[in-house]
């Protein structure tokens, strides 16, 4: 059996129970785009933003990490995040995707596709950020 590295959050492991904003419980691998959209609609603080993957490159600090550059929201703000290559992002209409889906599947048993430039990921911002 495999153990996820400590820096990868436990809720991405297949079978993890996720509570939606309306109280419904779902397994992480069963989540759909609509679950995130509907939960954000209920939320008073959070809203969903579209974050388009603009660039994916290896990290300078470790081969286990990748730097993903996103274009966030309608203003296309540039945001870069450094994540473990197996870290899953949720792509609109597609589901969980990571820089190294084989590793995600191996470590987390989470069904996952390859994250690619042009993919539109679900991200969050504050509703009243002005």
């Amino acid at each position: 059996s495999t153990v996820a590295p400590p820096s990868l959050p436990p809720y991405f492991i297949k079978g993890s129970i996720i509570q939606l904003a309306d109280g419904e419980l779902k397994r992480v691998e069963d989540l759909k785009t609509e679950d995130f959209i509907q939960s954000a609609e209920i939320s008073s603080e959070l809203k969903i933003d579209s974050s388009t993957v603009e660039r994916i490159e290896g990290s300078h600090t470790s081969p286990n990490f990748a730097v993903v550059q996103f274009s966030v929201g309608e203003h296309r703000a540039q945001v870069s995040v450094e994540v473990l290559v197996e870290y899953p992002f949720f792509v609109f209409g597609q589901g969980w995707s990571s820089c190294c889906p084989d590793r995600t599947t191996q470590l987390l048993e989470l069904p996952c596709t390859k994250l690619s430039v042009g993919d539109v990921c679900i991200s969050l911002t504050l509703k009243n950020l002005r």
Binding site: I18, D35, F89, L124, T125
Partner: peptide, 19 residues
């Protein structure tokens, strides 16, 4: 069994406010 809130699975990407 731990239950995790939905928003913990989504990266919080706050665009920098330039204005």
């Amino acid at each position: 069994v731990p239950v995790f809130p939905w928003h913990s699975l989504v990266p919080f990407l706050a665009p920098t406010q330039s204005d």
